[in-house]
């Protein structure tokens, strides 16, 4: 589903964020990217949805070399990749339902689809009764659920999660992990960057460990290490 082939990424000349990285993530996998701050986790995720371009190497998504993708096709790639972040990136002036339907509106989905999909997905993430609330009226965990709903409403093949539990207390984080696990069980490939050892140890999934831009470990059913 996602393949990195000798990928190197440098910021502003000499700051190497990722060095000759190789990885092959298959359909339906759940993969943790672990490592300390600045080790290159976010960079790796941003390369996967073409938010960044590699200096060298190739990146394949669903069998296609995304380096060869013309710029007008990048939106189509992103429609197959949901993204969630530590800071949720919700629009504060829109309600839960509006935040979610916005994601469908801006890719031109018909109104009838939006009308049925949005309540469904709100229900799925456990916010059925909070659809008309604004983000500032919600807890951190609930806001992250909204962002998951927005990322998943389009049923993407891949979900990229950049430290989604970074701002949440352990109890709330477990709830979010359960939700991501359920999404993964529907066949969606999940790649999640984190430096939360407890979560990684509990989930027992594939772990790719980064250290100053190098992949130092790639192990199945592993722990944080």
């Amino acid at each position: 589903m996602i393949k990195l082939d000798d990928v190197t990424k440098t910021y502003s000349g000499e700051n190497v964020a990722l060095r000759s990285a190789n990885a092959d993530i298959t359909k339906g996998e759940f993969v943790f990217l672990v490592g300390p701050s600045g080790s290159g986790k976010s960079t790796m995720l941003r390369l996967m949805n073409k938010s960044e371009e590699p200096d060298s190497g190739r990146i394949f998504v669903a069998g296609k070399d995304i380096g060869k993708l013309s710029s007008w096709k990048v939106p189509m790639l992103r429609r197959n990749i949901g993204s969630i972040f530590q800071d949720y990136k919700l629009l504060p002036n829109k309600t839960v339902a509006e935040n979610v339907s916005f994601a469908l509106e801006v890719i031109g989905r018909p109104r009838s689809v939006i009308k049925t999909q949005v309540p469904q997905i709100c229900e799925l993430v456990g916010l059925g009764d909070k659809a008309e609330k604004y983000p500032h009226q919600l807890s951190g965990g609930e806001q992250q659920r909204v962002s998951i709903a927005r990322a998943f409403v389009n049923r993407p093949l891949i979900l990229l999660a950049d430290e989604p539990t970074g701002n949440l207390d352990p109890q709330t984080a477990i709830g979010i992990m359960r939700l991501l696990d359920r999404i993964n069980k529907t066949g969606t490939t999940v790649v999640m960057a984190t430096h939360d050892a407890k979560i990684v140890d509990t989930m027992q999934r594939r772990v790719i460990q980064l250290d100053t831009g190098n992949i130092v470990r790639d192990e199945r059913e592993a722990t944080y290490g």
Partner: peptide, 17 residues
């Protein structure tokens, strides 16, 4: 800019933005 960022993220085309 956050709105534009979200639009790009969920796959809105440049013209749609």
């Amino acid at each position: 800019r956050r709105e534009v960022e979200v639009m790009k993220l969920v796959g809105a085309t440049n013209w749609f933005v």
